[in-house]
Design a protein around this nucleic acid. Structure first.
Lengths: 119, 119
DNA sequence: TTAATATATTCGCATACTTGAATATATTAA
DNA sequence: TTAATATATTCAAGTATGCGAATATATTAA
């Protein structure tokens, strides 16, 4: 298989792993800081089980990694820049939604962008 | 639904649409220029039917658009910058593969990056 | 008109993903 | 030890995706 095809396959695998509404949001939650399962679940108003499932999948694909401390499992992005990359991807979303939603995108971007950047 | 969730959903939809090895490659083929189905099929060594199916899906999701001229259907990226964004995404792939493959990523990036940028 | 070319659409099956519910495990508190 | 907390894993059913083969449509050439 030619190298371009190999790389495309790997990249598409990464894209596939993050292309779920919950997972996009989880990645943004982890922008610049680690968080435990419950904290994420509360922030996104989803069950801890579901968050755990998503994190388990993303860990298997090395998008996130885990640090255990007592009964808390803290997750962080293996490559913190991926969150910035996703924020850049919002640019493509802007032109795709209604004017009303476009305003929401800007506010979402502001919110996400406002989180302290990870070293 | 809060705005962040809406935006995340839309973005994940875009990601999902492009997260297929063939489709990543098609987008890169369309970087900076329109091409017809057969041209793409030959370049990627895939059947025209398959390329047509991918393009049809991406068109439905407004990733690409079509211009018909005679019996040729030329496709182009609705948002040409998406190709650049994908090239940036290669950065995340580099750390994920073996050293040998990492070299291939660089060459792939060089190849893709060498294509003239669309205005 | 007929044939050839270029592409699209439909079909069907195999595979994969999503998700809540139930169950299991690890850690700390009583 | 026992109970409570935090998270993980398994299961099963519903849904979606991928893909080749067959068929259909549009355009141009003969």
């Amino acid at each position: 298989m030619p190298s371009r095809a190999i790389v495309a396959k790997e990249l598409s695998q990464v894209l596939k792993t993050i292309s779920h509404p919950d997972r996009v949001r989880i990645i943004e939650e982890l922008r610049g800081q680690e968080k435990d399962v419950n904290t994420i679940a509360e922030a996104l108003e989803l069950t801890a089980t579901r968050i755990s499932q998503h994190l388990s999948l993303m860990k298997a694909h090395r998008i996130v990694d885990e640090r255990r401390e007592g009964r808390h499992h803290y997750y962080h992005l293996v490559q913190p820049e991926i969150a910035d990359w996703i924020v850049n991807g919002l640019a493509f979303v802007e032109g795709r939604m209604s004017a009303v939603s476009a305003a929401e995108i800007k506010s979402a971007r502001k919110l996400w962008g406002a989180v302290p950047v990870q070293k």
